[in-house]
Computed example of a mutant assay.
Amino acid sequence: MESRTPPSQGDSSALSEGRRHKTGEGYVPLLMISSLCLFIGSISSSLLAKYYFIHKGSSRWVSTWVQSAGFPLLFPFIFVPYLLKRTQRRPFTHFTPKLWVLSIFVGLMLGVNNLLFSWGTSYLPVSTSSLLLSTQLLFNLILSVLIVKQKITFSNLNCVILLTLSSVLLALSSSSDRPPGLTRAKYFIGFFSTVGAGLLFALYLPVMEKIYRKVYCYAMVVEMQLVMEIAATVLATVGMIADGGFAEMKQEGESVFDKGPRVYYATVAMTVACWQMCFMGTAGMVFMTSSLTGGICMTALLAMNVLGGVVVYRDDFGGVKIVSTVLYIWGFCSYVYGMHLKNTKHQETKNKPSVTPPGSGPGNRHGPAMEMASSAQMPDVASVEV
Rank of each mutant, 00 (worst) to 15 (best):
S118F: 01
F191C: 02
I54A: 10
L301A: 04
S166G: 13
G18R: 12
Q150K: 13
N343W: 15
L31D: 07
E371L: 12
S118C: 05
N305F: 03
G318E: 14
F92P: 02
V238Q: 08
Y216H: 11
G10L: 15
S34W: 05
I78T: 06
L47N: 00
C217Q: 13
K259S: 01
V326W: 13
S193W: 07
E229T: 03
L38R: 03
S255Y: 11
M1H: 07
S8V: 07
F139Q: 04
V286K: 07
F246P: 00
V195G: 09
V323Y: 10
L138F: 13
E248V: 01
A266R: 10
G18M: 15
I147K: 03
N140W: 04
S42M: 12
S255F: 05
R262P: 02
L36G: 05
V384P: 00
V112D: 06
V207S: 10
L307T: 03
R184N: 14
A49M: 06
V227T: 11
W61E: 00
I230C: 11
S360I: 05
V268S: 00
Q9G: 01
K186Y: 13
T237S: 14
P379M: 13
A232R: 00
G309W: 04
G338F: 03
G319E: 15
A266Q: 15
K350V: 05
K149T: 02
A197W: 04
Q225L: 12
L133V: 02
M304L: 13
F191M: 07
C297K: 07
R60A: 09
T293V: 12
G41Y: 01
L131N: 09
Y187M: 10
G294S: 11
E385Q: 11
T271F: 07
P72G: 08
S12H: 13
E248Q: 11
R90P: 03
L302E: 05
F139D: 04
F191A: 02
I104W: 09
G244W: 12
M277H: 04
A273I: 06
G111F: 06
R262T: 09
N156E: 05
N113R: 08
S12M: 14
S176P: 03
P76S: 14
S42V: 03
S174C: 09
S290K: 14
I329V: 12
I211F: 05
A382T: 06
V256H: 03
L172M: 13
T87S: 14
G196W: 05
V336T: 06
Q225W: 04
N158T: 10
G367W: 15
S35G: 12
S255H: 09
W330Y: 10
E2Y: 06
R365Q: 08
D380L: 15
V310P: 03
T93V: 12
M285L: 15
Y51Q: 03
F257P: 00
F117C: 01
Y335Q: 11
G41N: 03
H94T: 02
